[in-house]
Design a binder for these strands. Structure first.
Lengths: 249, 249
DNA sequence: ACGCCCCCTTCCACTCAGCGGAAGTAGATT
DNA sequence: AATCTACTTCCGCTGAGTGGAAGGGGGCGT
């Protein structure tokens, strides 16, 4: 097993997730699979450096230093910053929840999400992952993913709602249409009452991200939304290409 | 010296900063003060875990996993999310660059920054730090900081522009007025051509952050800006207090 | 084409940092 | 006062980590 000190320290950091943002030393040791004394020493070191911080009640949380480091990640500093103003424009003109996502392995990783004060109950969260076959941005990313990734992803089409596509052949058919038409849609495949549209974001020739929005109903306004999305995606692509900053994938 | 494995691994992460977002193994070893072979092994472990990623050219960058962890930090998940919609409103009504910041030690840490397509040349960046005595948000945070922090901060008033306040007595005088009037201003004290206003954000009785904006000129519209800021700050405070989510300080 | 240089990767025997069971401390709870 | 839970400290044994050195490999100048 992970016997190296480094892997143990990382196991401690890995013990935090969306449902566990604050953990006591004992919990931390337990979740990381470490003896209490060992966890105590490592946690102390991480805390001293600023990777962990303590709350008023003594629980540990992820520290500001990790947060700051995260801001240096290419996904954040390149893509997200390029996209930010365009997302605001999109939100301003449509008032729908807007998403920017990348593919990470066989999942969709949400990089940015914009919603108003009263956010529609949408599942996604910045930094969270969702399956690719049941989301608009996921279908786009899958459509433009390398062949082997696509095949791998087709093997596990888990059902989420009654409308989720679980037949590989049907999904492949849709992905083909996505490539032909340049956008993807979903209808209550991820959560009931929510439809989505998404388009690819390109940097040069390669698709580097997907831009999507979630709305209660698509039928009437689909063309308008698609064209708004495409304008924004194109703008982001141009910013990425022209940016003198760091490469990001 | 930092001889523990953990501190060495952290030193590698710490080698990244705003000016060094992508580093080769050799640079990394050099900046972290480690022998190449040692750095190689540690970097490999960090990379395998996802703390580091590699770019096309082989350079290492901060990985997505660290970015995701950072999103769990209280500063991000509590404060930032509570503030986000209010910042958008503020930006929408004023079109000025808007800032949310907290105090970290003797410096101001920028937690959120909102600007339009054409951003005025503002020094701050999300995740960056600036001195407290030369920024609007800094003055607010200093005004409401514990006595010992304030005294410590007064010892090092470094000059940045010709208008930077470097006399402790004068700054103290201003901080007193900040507490009395509920807002702080600066006039070209951080960078020429930029003025700022800022107000405290409260959670219950304690000041937990500062909300500010940067504009080319203050004179005419000061009252309007201050009241817009105060409305937003109040809204953020209410959201924080009422939020069922994690505590964040 | 050849050799040079720079950067990365692998190896291996020594040794000291890290390990973790156990004992100690501090609060809360009964 | 006794009991429990959660955290902190101690210390001698040991194998994980170390890092100098040697082994690729690819880009560049001549």
């Amino acid at each position: 097993m992970g016997a190296s000190v480094t892997s143990r320290a990382l196991a401690i950091l890995g013990a935090f997730d969306g449902e566990h943002r604050a953990l006591s030393l004992t919990d931390l040791a337990h979740r990381a699979g470490l003896p209490l004394a060992t966890a105590h020493r490592l946690v102390g070191e991480l805390h001293r450096w600023g990777a962990l911080a303590r709350e008023a009640n003594g629980d540990y949380v992820i520290g500001r230093r990790i947060w700051q480091l995260g801001l240096l990640a290419p996904v954040q500093s390149g893509l997200r910053q390029a996209a930010s103003p365009f997302l605001h424009d999109l939100y301003g003109t449509t008032l729908a929840t807007v998403h920017l996502a990348v593919r990470d392995g066989l999942e969709v990783l949400y990089v940015e999400r914009l919603a108003g004060h009263v956010s529609v109950p949408v599942v996604s969260r910045v930094g969270s992952r969702l399956p690719m076959h049941s989301t608009g941005v996921g279908k786009v990313l899958l459509a433009y993913a390398p062949e082997d990734v696509r095949m791998e992803a087709l093997k596990a089409l888990t059902r989420i709602t009654a409308y989720t596509i679980t037949q590989p052949a049907r999904l492949l058919e849709q992905l083909k249409r996505v490539r032909a038409e340049g956008y993807a849609t979903t209808g209550e495949e991820m959560s009931l009452g929510a439809c989505s549209v998404a388009v690819p974001v390109r940097n040069g020739d390669s698709v580097v991200a997907a831009l999507g929005m979630v709305v209660p109903d698509l039928r009437r306004q689909l063309p308008r939304l698609v064209s708004a999305l495409q304008v924004a995606a194109h703008g982001i692509g141009r910013t990425l290409a022209g940016a003198p900053s760091v490469q990001w994938k």
